[in-house]
Design a binder for these strands. Structure first.
Length: 216
DNA sequence: ATCCCGAGGG
DNA sequence: CCCTCTGGAT
């Protein structure tokens, strides 16, 4: 048996984590790309459970970008209020919808650069939409993925875009979407900032940072 | 108090 | 690089 390369070791670790978190997936409720885009924009600093509480009435009232484009700001604010950052989110949703209806034929583009160009849509949101609504590999780098990738020695970068590139090079693209979900699940459950619960971690024996308390 | 699968602006 | 935006859950 040959020595594991860094890439193979990473995949071994990932597959172990996938067994620990087999249900790790997008917990937002949506029926189409538009709904997932909206839900993901709302999910910033908010639990998915809470997002799922407000989206049914929001989607009923504004089933398409065209409908949302003409929405009253105050009404949208009221509907999404409990998700936090509601003024920014409402403003972004409406201008986003306006751009989709005027410049994208009312469709959510299945393209990273076009998604990121929308107001309130960053790379994290764009990759969630690509990976989950379009089945296009999307390497989500949020706070958990950033922290875990660093701890696992998968990247030395601090910049999320560089981390995204490093992970894309390390992992085959068919793993990108699920890897985001798996790392986020593990980051929330055990591999926390600043003190990971290594004593309870099922992959501690394969982790270069096991037992090391760190601030990132 | 601290955290929740961020993004934009200065 | 920093700051701000925000309510709800634990």
């Amino acid at each position: 048996m040959r020595t594991l390369t860094g890439r193979d070791a990473a995949i071994v670790l990932l597959e172990r984590l996938e067994q620990v978190y087999p249900e790790a997936e997008c917990a937002l409720n949506y029926r189409n790309p538009w709904q997932l885009l909206v839900a993901t924009m709302l999910s910033a600093q908010c639990t998915d459970v809470r997002v799922n509480l407000v989206t049914p009435s929001l989607f009923e009232r504004f089933p398409s970008p065209e409908a949302m484009a003409d929405a009253d700001l105050v009404e949208v604010e009221a509907l999404i209020r409990s998700t936090g950052f509601f003024r920014n989110k409402a403003k972004n949703l409406i201008s986003c919808a306006a751009i989709l209806s005027t410049e994208h034929d009312g469709e959510v583009p299945a393209d990273l650069e076009q998604l990121v160009a929308l107001p309130g849509v960053g790379r994290k949101t764009a990759n969630v939409v690509l990976g989950n609504a379009f089945g296009i590999p999307g390497m989500v780098v949020d706070t958990h993925v950033k922290r875990l990738a660093g701890r696992f020695g998968w990247t030395r970068a601090e910049d999320p875009v560089k981390i995204e590139k490093d992970l894309q090079q390390l992992l085959p693209e068919e793993r990108w979407t699920r890897t985001g979900h798996t790392l986020i699940a593990h980051g929330r459950a055990l591999c926390k900032a600043p003190t990971p619960v290594c004593s309870a971690c099922p992959i501690a024996d394969g982790c270069p940072r096991r037992g090391v308390t760190c601030s990132k």
